[in-house]
């Protein structure tokens, strides 16, 4: 049901986690983030857990994504992801769901916001 809340999910990347993510999405010419996380890493980790909790089943695919980064996140910093189902409908033979996620630091300040639309064949 729209309005359903998900999480919070705790996210913290170790130095090894950060290196693993950077290696997967880039390489030698990638940006140097110093001691900060690649900004999309935190969002991706939160969304993975949220979409799994949506319970739409295996085979869910991404249809659209919006993200706003508010500040950089340090490696090792604890972030919580708070999700909310915004819409959930069936169109044709597919189910569409849109979830909004706010990523907050330990003080409760937003570090990023995201809105994700996923599809699963009904």
């Amino acid at each position: 049901m729209p309005g359903h809340k998900f999480g919070p999910y705790e996210i913290a990347f170790s130095r090894e986690d950060a290196a693993r993510y950077s290696a997967a999405v880039g390489g030698d010419g990638s940006p140097d983030y110093g001691g900060m996380m690649p900004p999309m890493a935190v969002v991706a980790a939160g969304l993975s857990r949220l979409i799994a909790d949506l319970g739409l089943g295996a085979g869910t695919v991404h249809a659209g994504q919006e993200v706003q980064f508010r500040r950089a996140v340090s490696v090792g910093e604890r972030i919580t992801a708070h999700g909310e189902l915004k819409s959930n409908s069936i169109r044709g033979d597919a189910r569409f769901a849109t979830v909004a996620t706010e990523f907050r630091d330990a003080a409760g300040h937003a570090v990023a916001n995201a809105s994700s639309t996923v599809i699963v064949q009904a």
């Binding site: 986690d17 997967a24 857990r49």
Partner: peptide, 9 residues
């Protein structure tokens, strides 16, 4: 593994 997204697709 890095994003913890193990969707089998």
């Amino acid at each position: 593994r890095a994003a913890m997204d193990f969707n089998p697709i």
